[in-house]
Design a protein around this nucleic acid. Sequence first.
DNA 1: AACTCTAACTTACCGCCGTTAAGTATATCC
DNA 2: GGATATACTTAACGGCGGTAAGTTAGAGTT
Lengths: 206, 206
Amino acid sequence: MGVKERRERQKENLRQEILDAARKLFVEEGYDNVTMRRVAEQIEYSPTTIYLHFKDKADLLFSLCQETFAKLAGQFEALGHEFPNPLSSLKKGLRTYIQFGLDHPNHYLATFVIPYKCDAQERERHLSQDSMGMRAFDYLRMIVAECIRQGMFRPVDVEEASRALWAAAHGITSLLIVHPVFPWGDRERLIDLVIDSMVAGLQSKG
Amino acid sequence: MGVKERRERQKENLRQEILDAARKLFVEEGYDNVTMRRVAEQIEYSPTTIYLHFKDKADLLFSLCQETFAKLAGQFEALGHEFPNPLSSLKKGLRTYIQFGLDHPNHYLATFVIPYKCDAQERERHLSQDSMGMRAFDYLRMIVAECIRQGMFRPVDVEEASRALWAAAHGITSLLIVHPVFPWGDRERLIDLVIDSMVAGLQSKG
DNA sequence: AACTCTAACTTACCGCCGTTAAGTATATCC
DNA sequence: GGATATACTTAACGGCGGTAAGTTAGAGTT
């Protein structure tokens, strides 16, 4: 009775083929230039076939981004869960986050920047604890907690500090992606300035 | 020979009518739900008429956003150009910027968040010194310069510090707009935390 | 081997969209 | 009163996301 299994394998293969085709278009040309028709053309199926594997375009691209952000979560978790020097771990983590966004601009845009057009149920899905974006956020929160536990931060709420740091990192990431032409000067220096300022601002006065 | 003048006045009126109709749709329903057809329907003209006044949809909505951001620039410039207490002026300015974004979410999105689809020439236009967004940025830079001049900031480059502050402010603004469902906790506190941390981080150690 | 049924896939379409070419009417000018 | 320019519309193009209905191939059943 390996028939059913083979069928499922084939179905899974096609799903992956769709994802790969979509990713290629997505990486090269961004959200709007991925059309169901072009994806279909690439894999040499009719456009409707895609809908047998993905609910709609948003679902397809969301799945795509999840795949990619899983890499970020993996990168983070590979850094380990011990933070002998939490301040430098924090800076390194923020650096990693920002660089990841710059390396995968269209994924970053689709995940965090493009305004949702979907209903509350889908929005919840995008923000759920299971999502890869949130797993990365969890890691940030862990480091922040350690900074606070070791007394290196002034006594601020872990959640609030994490959100504030995320906001700042998101700000520089998204601006650099969306406005590449703006005279940013030395980008690396600017990124470091944002990170260093935020972290310094959260440190205890002593 | 008042004929030509009257004609021009009428033309200007229709242009403004188009802008008003588009703004109504835009504020209520955002970029994607403004369609040339719906704007035309609202003003009871055919869709093509709009193209006699605006090059395309992007031009129409850009003009719209310029109108709105002129208000922000005005708000800033009304605060005066003297900064006896530049640190508190800076915080107040950032606060104003963020609040303005939250009050005009769709304008903010269209101006700073939505990735450009236009060519380099248009991009330049959007970022030019004349644009209202940049006038607001100029004001921020002035305050930062004053902070540095008065020795309240560690000796950092004016441009870099301004960009870093803008990035942080943009980060929290855009996240709050784009992900309204995320558990942000007390938004006001979070906004203040971002602002206070960045400003504190830029201050001189003394 | 013939029949049934199911899953995979396609065809043909819907109702939108931004935009443009071509046409019409109207008011001004000479 | 005829020419001209301006304002505006009609009708269409090509594209989009998405769906209902139809086709086909092949496994399961007798």
